[in-house]
């Protein structure tokens, strides 16, 4: 091609492409903006219900939880974020029983890998959606999850196999959680057996 024509046509193709770019930003100027105004939109903010923020131990109205202090979560945690301390107590019928004393979780070292939750045989712990975890004091990151004075949920649950009990609880749960539990059930049984094996030894 004639270099002069090439020179001139080069200018025009360049201009055309540049204007194409300008058009994109021009259209963007009038579009709805994507910024979320965070503290103001607290009310309308939707956090996915599977979002992992803080580990917590659900307590029922009688201040009872489901943790048997078996320590599986502690052993499974890759970073030593969970510390479970337990006492041995003697029940009325003379059997020795492990009772949860302190369940301490360190927000600062947790990597939210969910291993503790999926391996827990009694579904005693869960991650909640409370994502506002900023703290002024580092010591506040280390938390005791069992409430003072709380105890293990008694009832027939201990004697019954774990799975049917959960099955009964299912319909009331959110659909997302349902699936989580289904997965846990078979593993939980095995883990239960294993932990009892350990105790026997």
């Amino acid at each position: 091609m004639n270099p002069f024509i090439k020179y001139i046509s080069g200018i025009f193709t360049a201009l055309k492409a540049l204007i194409g770019g300008l058009r994109v930003t021009w259209r963007e100027l009038w579009r709805k903006k994507v910024t979320m105004q965070y503290p103001e939109n607290r009310e309308t903010l939707v956090i996915s219900d599977r979002w992992r923020s803080e580990l917590h131990m659900p307590h029922d109205e009688n201040n009872e939880h489901a943790c048997t202090a078996c320590g599986i979560c502690m052993n499974n945690c890759p970073n030593g974020t969970i510390k479970v301390t337990s006492n041995m107590e003697e029940t009325e019928d003379g059997k020795k029983k492990r009772v949860l004393d302190k369940y301490v979780w360190d927000y600062g070292t947790c990597t939210f890998c969910n291993l503790c939750v999926i391996t827990c045989p009694s579904d005693a712990i869960q991650f909640n959606n409370d994502f506002e975890g900023a703290m002024y004091d580092r010591s506040k990151l280390i938390r005791q999850l069992n409430k003072p004075g709380s105890k293990l949920r008694e009832k027939e649950k201990v004697e019954k196999p774990a799975a049917p009990a959960k099955e009964a609880a299912k319909p009331t749960e959110a659909p997302a959680k349902k699936e989580e539990k289904k997965e846990i059930a078979p593993e939980a049984k095995k883990a239960d057996e294993k932990s009892s094996d350990k105790e026997n030894k």
Partner: peptide, 8 residues
Amino acid sequence: DNFFTHNP
């Protein structure tokens, strides 16, 4: 493409 790919 319009915005960046063909930009001289």
